[in-house]
């Protein structure tokens, strides 16, 4: 029996409806979460950025004034500088360290799970606790770091002093995040085809060359992901700065998000100001990420 075009249309519509209904059934919950936890806050932030006043009292619309006042803010440059320096100090060691650790971990057979746990352990430590641990490590009188220096007859260092605090903060971040990426990289390395390495081995590639010509390019995608994500995280450093140094000494570890926090929860109704800073930071991170994407995805084979 031949069906008319109209009948075909109707049947096709029914089939499609059924398929889409199923799709929405699965997507629905995710979509709700997306709206509630992402869209609403972002729209809220945009709204707040045009307001003066605080959470407790009322607010008034001030247009773009919050943004216009940002450049004059005392310490704005310092906060941006601190954040960028922090990112530069922490991200390369995190990724290079994670890569080095993962290369070793991927080769370990016996007790691999135990080693991986030890490497991953700092990741499980909440930022606040990590800050406290490092407070003890860096204590001038009884901290581990200065005790080691003393044992070697070196003058103890004021680790949380104004010149070194940001570096210590970066070191803490390396300590906390290196394991995270190491585990990612181990998984990637283990997933690389064994035959390629055998082939390269026969082709006369030394260990170093196999790393350079095979491992690195084959891990391109995950490395790229790690660079982007750790940059995003790095620019948002906050909790450890709060616990370890409270943004000090002076403003030595006052980062952008630290300023946002000061303004949001400070006594003095500057939520709109905080929202404006956040939006500028979001825009900056977005720009940076897109630039990284363009730079890193220059070659074919990465799509």
């Amino acid at each position: 029996m031949r069906l008319s075009p109209g009948q075909h249309r109707q049947l096709r519509r029914q089939a499609r409806l059924k398929r889409e209904l199923t799709a929405w059934l699965f997507l629905g919950p995710m979509f709700v979460f997306f709206v509630v936890f992402l869209v609403v806050p972002v729209v809220g932030t945009v709204w707040w950025s045009t307001q003066a006043g605080g959470i407790v009292g009322g607010t008034t619309n001030v247009g773009l004034q919050n943004f216009q006042r940002l450049p004059d803010l005392v310490g704005a440059t310092t906060a941006i500088q601190n954040t960028l320096i922090f990112a530069l100090l922490s991200i390369p060691p995190i990724l290079i360290g994670a890569l080095a650790i993962s290369l070793v971990l991927a080769r370990i057979g016996r007790g691999a799970a135990a080693y991986r746990f030890f490497v991953y352990f700092p990741v499980l430590v909440p930022g606040v606790v990590a800050g406290l641990i490092w407070l003890f490590l860096t204590n001038v009188d009884f901290g581990l770091f200065d005790n080691v220096l003393r044992a070697f007859g070196v003058q103890p260092v004021t680790w949380l002093g104004s010149d070194t605090a940001l570096g210590v903060l970066a070191a803490l971040d390396v300590w906390r995040n290196v394991g995270y990426w190491a585990i990612f990289f181990v998984a990637a390395i283990i997933g690389l085809p064994e035959e390629l390495y055998q082939a390269a081995n026969l082709d006369g590639a030394s260990t170093a060359k196999r790393f350079w010509y095979l491992t690195l390019p084959l891990m391109r995608r995950i490395l790229f992901f790690a660079i982007v994500v750790s940059t995003i995280w790095g620019l948002q450093v906050f909790d450890t700065a709060l616990v370890l140094t409270n943004g000090g000494p002076g403003t030595a570890t006052t980062t952008i998000i630290f300023r946002v926090w000061q303004y949001v929860f400070g006594t003095n109704d500057k939520v709109g100001f905080a929202a404006a800073i956040s939006l500028v930071l979001i825009a900056a991170i977005l720009t940076l990420t897109l630039t990284q994407m363009r730079l890193l995805r220059s070659r074919r084979g990465d799509d």
Partner: peptide, 20 residues
């Protein structure tokens, strides 16, 4: 001798071409 010093070349079942 290490593989590369044995003066043999191998062709693998899955070709083992370098994808990049």
């Amino acid at each position: 001798l290490k593989p590369s010093a044995r003066d043999v070349a191998m062709v693998f079942q899955n070709y083992a071409l370098y994808p990049h």
